[in-house]
């Protein structure tokens, strides 16, 4: 049993690594296919043949693509993502600190929204078509349909301008200690939480309603079990499995939306970094950010896979026979 689980986990891990390697190749090839290269992109209108050639030589762009890919990957493996063109410093120095800030945001939002949404979703499912359910479903609908910049702006308007309780934009340096950064995370976290919770709540609600209608829950009731035991032992585990898978997808999707949320609050995360890098046409930086975000995606999905495996004995024991 333990061995089986271990093989399954290892298998998933290997797959994730393989996909990650593939992503690296795809990013590199895509950038190769773009007209021009890092040098022409960076210099833009100021490009003269001489300056372009000079920059190319400095960046090593005159080498064949295969050699450059090998150099890039070996650098990435050592934690060296090359040099930022706009900031004239190693990409890694910006990347990790910004990633830390974004992860803080994502982690806070996940830790608050997932338990909250699951709890409220179960509550809505249990009080189906009565007022708690109607209220919660309506709220969820609102948060799903409002775009993140509207939510963010509304929050700024009410909590920073109307009541001056919280800062509207981040005023500290990206590399500031977490404790200093914390007050500035409140509103962005709230925005992300609202967005995440809406989907998860409605998902959990449907899932628990289905579970409560299932024959095995009816059977548990007919065995004379107390309602709480029926809910916790017979209905919830099965109802959670699809929600866990979906929540991973939603959280991964939120990573993409970090760009917008961070931009609204001018929060020094990887999203604003990406935005700047694109504006500066800083290709080494863009390349590194895309790779790191893809890695986050894969990691979250891997975790979700493992959680689903733990929640669903049918998948866990499939290979036993």
């Amino acid at each position: 049993m333990v061995e089986l689980m271990l093989t399954l986990v290892l298998q998933r891990l290997l797959w994730s690594l393989l996909v990650f390697a593939l992503v690296a190749v795809v990013i590199f090839v895509l950038l190769e296919l773009l007209p021009g290269d890092a040098a022409t992109a960076y210099l833009g209108r100021t490009a003269t043949p001489a300056r372009t050639a000079q920059l190319r030589e400095r960046l090593g762009l005159d080498r064949p693509a295969v050699v450059r890919f090998a150099a890039w990957t070996s650098g990435v493996l050592r934690g060296d993502f090359g040099t930022s063109l706009a900031r004239r410093a190693p990409v890694a120095t910006f990347l990790w600190v910004r990633l830390r800030n974004s992860l803080l945001l994502g982690l806070l939002a996940t830790l608050i929204s997932v338990p909250l949404a699951l709890l409220l979703g179960v509550l809505a499912g249990l009080t189906r078509d009565r007022w708690p359910d109607l209220l919660l479903s309506l709220l969820a609908l609102f948060s799903i349909s409002l775009p993140e910049f509207v939510i963010g702006t509304l929050l700024i308007f009410s909590f920073s301008l109307h009541f001056t309780l919280l800062p509207a934009v981040t005023l500290v340096d990206a590399a500031a200690p977490l404790a200093e950064l914390l007050p500035y995370t409140v509103l962005p976290t709230a925005t992300l939480t609202l967005m995440l919770s809406g989907y998860l709540l409605s998902l959990m609600r449907t899932s628990i309603i289905d579970a409560l209608r299932s024959e095995h829950v009816q059977m548990a009731r007919l065995k004379g079990l107390p309602p709480l035991r029926v809910l916790l032992w017979h209905a919830l585990p099965g109802a959670l499995a699809p929600v866990v898978t979906a929540s991973a997808m939603i959280i991964a999707w939120i990573i993409g939306n970090l760009v917008v949320v961070e931009a609204v609050f001018n929060y020094p995360g990887i999203g604003t970094l990406a935005l700047n890098a694109i504006q500066d046409r800083d290709l080494p930086m863009v390349q590194a950010i895309v790779l790191v975000l893809a890695g986050c995606h894969l990691l979250i999905n891997l975790l979700a896979d493992l959680l689903t495996l733990a929640l669903n004995p049918q998948l866990r024991t499939l290979r036993m026979r």
Partner: peptide, 21 residues
């Protein structure tokens, strides 16, 4: 009453057993 006096056996055992227990 359900636990001690009257017990129910359903038609569809595969559906009536909780799959996660």
């Amino acid at each position: 009453l359900r636990g001690q006096q009257v017990a129910f056996v359903p038609q569809n055992a595969s559906q009536a057993l909780t799959p996660t227990m």
